Computed example of a mutant assay.
Amino acid sequence: MLSKEEALRVAGRFLDEAYANDSTGWTIVVLPDGSYRYHAGWAVRFDSQEALDSGQPWIGPMMKILLVPDDGSEPEFPPTNIPVPDYLEKLAAGEWPEGGGAR
């Protein structure tokens, strides 16, 4: 089981790589206060520094949550077509991905 601090470090490294070659020029920052534990890991919130500085939430990535599993598997962005809590419930029940098992 990852501690919150470990999950934040994993998320930071993943996001640095994910946005390293991004043409938008956003500065991605992890938001520890908005991060929370779910059944199999952490949901880590992040945003662009530009959105935080300007107060304009539409600046930056559309999805601003990264799931960091406790089992050491690759972090993932949840799908955007359903609310994150619903996705996490489906994941825990083994209903996501379709025909998949619980994580």
Rank of each mutant, 00 (worst) to 15 (best):
S3P: 01
N21T: 08
A20F: 11
D22I: 06
T80E: 14
A92F: 07
F77I: 15
D47P: 00
L67V: 13
D86S: 10
E50N: 02
T24S: 14
P78E: 01
M1N: 05
I28M: 05
P83F: 11
R13Q: 13
D71R: 12
G94Q: 09
Y38W: 14
V30T: 14
D16R: 15
S73Y: 02
H39A: 14
R103W: 13
E76G: 00
L91H: 03
V68R: 06
N81W: 11
D71A: 09
L2Y: 11
S54F: 02
W96R: 10
D47L: 01
G60C: 06
V68C: 02
M1L: 09
D86C: 04
Q56K: 13
W42V: 07
K90G: 06
Y19T: 12
A20P: 07
G72Y: 12
E17L: 13
G34M: 02
D71N: 15
I82E: 15
R103T: 09
E74T: 12
S73L: 04
P69D: 09
G72M: 11
M1F: 05
D70M: 01
S23V: 11
P85R: 09
L91Q: 11
L8N: 03
I59P: 10
P61A: 11
Y19P: 08
R37G: 11
A20L: 15
A51P: 10
I65E: 07
P79Q: 09
W42I: 11
P61W: 02
Y87N: 04
V30F: 08
Y87R: 10
R9K: 12
E6D: 03
M62N: 03
L67R: 07
R9Y: 02
S23K: 09
L88F: 13
N21V: 03
P97C: 01
E50D: 06
A11V: 07
P32N: 08
G60W: 04
L67Q: 09
Y36F: 13
E76Y: 02
P83W: 08
D86H: 09
D47Q: 05
M62H: 08
D70H: 00
E98V: 11
W96E: 06
A93K: 15
L52W: 03
R37M: 05
L2I: 05
R13V: 15
D86N: 12
D16V: 05
S35F: 02
